[in-house]
Simulated assay, not measured.
Amino acid sequence: MPGGRLTQQDRQRIAAGLTDGLSYAEIARRLDRPTSTISREIARNGGPGDYRPQQAHQATAQRARRGTPAPPRTAGPPGSAMEEEIIEMAVRTGLPRLTARVHLDLLLSEDGRRTAGELTRRLKVSPASVSVAVNYLVQHGYVRRERDPQRRRDIYVVDDDAWYHSIAISTRQTLEAAQAATSAAETSGLDTPVGQRLAKGGAFLERVSLDMMKSADRWRTLLA
């Protein structure tokens, strides 16, 4: 029932949503609950990386019997609150939650390198979920893939130049959109309202993209 207490089945669906990399808002929508309810539930029961539905349900029942408040959100290992905040910011920009978790784990690793097995164990998710997240990061230039020929496995790497490559890929994609808009404008007719609107949009995207790439080239030395 919307607005009532979370059931054990609700908590299992929350755990499944976290494993699939869904945002808190999407999990809330599927359960027909406020996003704040889902956020509090996860924060008070181990956070997105350690949420366990059975333990969460038992802990909630025990707190209700004792009448004691839930532990504060900052409870847990040092840095967990900061990491959760960074992940939330990434999700708000459109990055899938699990993808954001994988990216952050790589960024915070000592040498910026992890294998798929290490990511699976550290984040407690399935190899398939890690594969989807890593493929997204590689596709968008945030991470590169190296091959370990001796052990026949991939190693995923975040290096300083990743920031530059991610901007370069994003810029190329925006330029493709600009070219598509320009072509559509010509097809519609540059003397029509639709054609003029598309032509203006294409010109804007092209200029902004070229300026961004020039800026990235100019300041790339900061990453050296």
Rank of each mutant, 00 (worst) to 15 (best):
I86V: 09
I87L: 11
E88R: 15
M89Y: 13
A90F: 13
V91A: 03
R92N: 15
G94Q: 07
G94L: 04
L95C: 07
L95D: 01
T99M: 04
T99N: 05
L104F: 02
D105V: 05
D105F: 02
L106T: 04
L108F: 07
T115L: 09
A116Q: 08
G117P: 00
R122Y: 02
A128Y: 08
A128L: 11
S131C: 03
V134K: 02
Y136H: 14
V138G: 04
Q139I: 00
Q139G: 07
H140A: 05
Y142V: 01
R144P: 00
E146L: 11
E146Y: 03
P149K: 10
Q150E: 15
Q150W: 12
R152Q: 12
R152F: 05
D154A: 12
I155L: 06
V157M: 06
V158Y: 01
D159L: 06
D160P: 00
D161I: 08
W163D: 11
W163V: 12
H165P: 00
H165R: 11
H165G: 00
S166D: 10
A168R: 12
A168Q: 14
S170D: 13
S183A: 11
S183K: 10
A185F: 01
A185V: 01
T187Q: 09
T187S: 06
L190E: 04
T192S: 08
V194K: 13
R197T: 14
A199H: 09
K200R: 13
K200D: 10
A203H: 13
F204N: 08
L205D: 10
D211M: 11
D211S: 11
M213E: 13
